[in-house]
Simulated scan of single mutants.
Amino acid sequence: MSSTSPQPKSMMRPTQWSEQVEEAYRFQLAGYRDELEYKKFQKTDNVDRWPHNGYVKKLTRRDGCFYYYNKTRECPDKEISKTKIYTY
């Protein structure tokens, strides 16, 4: 990771599900902090999303494999508090 990548000012752990939590969960499952880190690492401006709700559809992992996500919520209740929400 290069030093030019923005570093988060703070991190919080959510207590209930939201679309923001779902977004963070999908990026973190694929091995990234969030969308900013994903775009920097993959050198892309494009994230493959479901057109009807904007949820992440597909991510490239750091090892080059892919994660494919459903159209609906994927973050289970037990994972909500393990998800990290970063602020910059």
Rank of each mutant, 00 (worst) to 15 (best):
residue 9 K to V: 15
residue 22 E to D: 06
residue 23 E to R: 13
residue 63 D to N: 10
residue 27 F to Q: 04
residue 45 D to F: 01
residue 40 K to P: 00
residue 54 G to P: 00
residue 14 P to F: 08
residue 10 S to G: 15
residue 45 D to W: 00
residue 12 M to I: 15
residue 13 R to L: 11
residue 17 W to L: 10
residue 11 M to A: 15
residue 21 V to H: 08
residue 23 E to G: 05
residue 65 C to D: 14
residue 44 T to P: 00
residue 49 R to Q: 07
residue 70 N to L: 12
residue 13 R to H: 15
residue 41 F to Y: 13
residue 10 S to C: 13
residue 8 P to V: 05
residue 3 S to H: 11
residue 2 S to A: 13
residue 2 S to H: 09
residue 12 M to N: 14
residue 48 D to P: 00
residue 20 Q to T: 15
residue 47 V to Y: 00
residue 66 F to I: 13
residue 41 F to D: 14
residue 27 F to M: 10
residue 17 W to D: 04
residue 24 A to G: 02
residue 31 G to R: 12
residue 50 W to A: 03
residue 8 P to K: 10
residue 49 R to F: 01
residue 17 W to C: 08
residue 29 L to N: 11
residue 43 K to W: 01
residue 2 S to G: 14
residue 55 Y to M: 09
residue 29 L to K: 14
residue 36 L to K: 02
residue 42 Q to I: 14
residue 63 D to K: 00
residue 46 N to H: 08
residue 19 E to Q: 09
residue 32 Y to A: 05
residue 34 D to N: 13
residue 66 F to D: 14
residue 19 E to W: 03
residue 23 E to Q: 14
residue 11 M to R: 14
residue 26 R to M: 04
residue 16 Q to R: 15
residue 58 K to R: 09
residue 25 Y to D: 06
residue 13 R to W: 08
residue 13 R to M: 12
residue 15 T to P: 00
residue 58 K to F: 01
residue 32 Y to K: 01
residue 28 Q to G: 04
residue 28 Q to A: 09
residue 44 T to G: 06
residue 25 Y to A: 11
residue 54 G to F: 00
residue 45 D to R: 02
residue 29 L to M: 12
residue 24 A to Q: 08
residue 14 P to H: 06
residue 44 T to C: 09
residue 26 R to I: 05
residue 34 D to W: 00
residue 60 T to E: 06
residue 28 Q to D: 07
residue 9 K to F: 15
residue 35 E to F: 06
residue 20 Q to W: 02
residue 71 K to W: 12
residue 55 Y to G: 03
residue 3 S to R: 06
residue 17 W to Q: 10
residue 46 N to C: 02
residue 44 T to H: 07
residue 72 T to W: 01
residue 3 S to N: 10
residue 34 D to F: 01
residue 32 Y to N: 02
residue 9 K to E: 15
residue 29 L to D: 12
residue 20 Q to L: 11
residue 68 Y to W: 08
residue 39 K to S: 04
residue 59 L to W: 02
residue 43 K to M: 13
residue 59 L to F: 03
residue 41 F to N: 06
residue 21 V to L: 08
residue 42 Q to P: 00
residue 35 E to C: 11
residue 43 K to H: 07
residue 41 F to I: 15
residue 52 H to A: 11
residue 48 D to S: 10
residue 64 G to S: 06
residue 46 N to M: 07
residue 38 Y to C: 13
residue 59 L to M: 04
residue 38 Y to R: 06
residue 66 F to S: 13
residue 64 G to Y: 10
residue 52 H to F: 05
residue 48 D to C: 03
residue 59 L to Y: 04
residue 70 N to A: 15
residue 36 L to Q: 07
residue 22 E to V: 14
residue 39 K to W: 05
residue 66 F to K: 09
residue 21 V to A: 11
residue 41 F to R: 02
residue 72 T to F: 02
residue 15 T to A: 10
residue 60 T to W: 01
residue 58 K to P: 00
residue 21 V to K: 05
residue 33 R to W: 07
residue 11 M to P: 00
residue 36 L to A: 12
residue 45 D to G: 05
residue 36 L to G: 03
residue 60 T to L: 02
residue 12 M to C: 15
